Amino acid sequence: AVSDRLIGRKGVVMEAISPQNSALVKVDGETWRATSGTVLDVGEEVSVKAIEGVKLVVEKLE
């Protein structure tokens, strides 16, 4: 799938994300809905860990 190429890519949080709420991230110039197990604020850099349906699963870039 096209989205599989995004695993391992870096992105930027466009809307705050919490474990209860998905929000938008920008990866390679494209906007995607994403979820995370932690709270992520706007502007934080993230890494794509997986794809669940049409959502990216991201975590904060260390």
Rank of each mutant, 00 (worst) to 15 (best):
S47I: 15
K26V: 12
V39A: 13
E44Q: 12
K55D: 09
L56R: 02
V42K: 07
N21T: 10
R9N: 05
D4C: 14
K10S: 08
T35N: 06
K60M: 05
K49I: 15
S22M: 11
G29S: 05
E45F: 12
E52F: 09
R9A: 08
A34H: 02
V57D: 03
V42C: 06
I51K: 04
N21F: 11
T38Q: 14
E15S: 09
S47W: 15
R5H: 10
G8F: 00
L6N: 03
W32D: 09
T31R: 07
E59A: 09
L40H: 03
D4P: 10
K49C: 10
V39H: 13
G37M: 13
L61S: 08
I51R: 06
V13E: 02
E15I: 07
D4Q: 12
S22I: 12
K60C: 04
E62A: 12
A1I: 12
A16K: 13
A34W: 00
K26T: 09
D28F: 03
V39L: 11
K49A: 08
E44H: 06
V39Q: 13
A23T: 08
G53P: 02
R33M: 15
S47C: 15
T38W: 07
D4V: 10
S3W: 07
G37L: 13
N21E: 09
G43Q: 03
S18V: 07
D28H: 04
S3R: 10
V48K: 00
V46Q: 02
L61N: 07
A50E: 06
D4R: 11
V2G: 10
T35I: 14
S36H: 04
L61F: 10
R5A: 09
K10A: 07
D28K: 00
V27S: 01
D41R: 14
V12R: 07
V12D: 03
P19E: 13
W32S: 09
E44R: 03
K60Y: 04
K10W: 08
G53W: 00
S47D: 04
S18F: 10
L24G: 04
P19Y: 09
L40T: 02
D28V: 01
I17E: 15
K49P: 01
E44I: 08
V13C: 04
V2I: 13
I7G: 01
K26S: 11
L24K: 06
I7T: 04
S22F: 09
A34E: 08
L6C: 06
Q20N: 13
V54K: 12
V57E: 05
S22D: 15
E15R: 06
E62Q: 12
T38K: 07
E59Y: 00
I51T: 05
S36C: 14
V27K: 02
P19T: 11
T35V: 13
Q20C: 14
R9M: 14
E59C: 06
T35Y: 07
S47Q: 14
G29R: 01
K26C: 15
V46E: 01
E44S: 09
S47R: 15
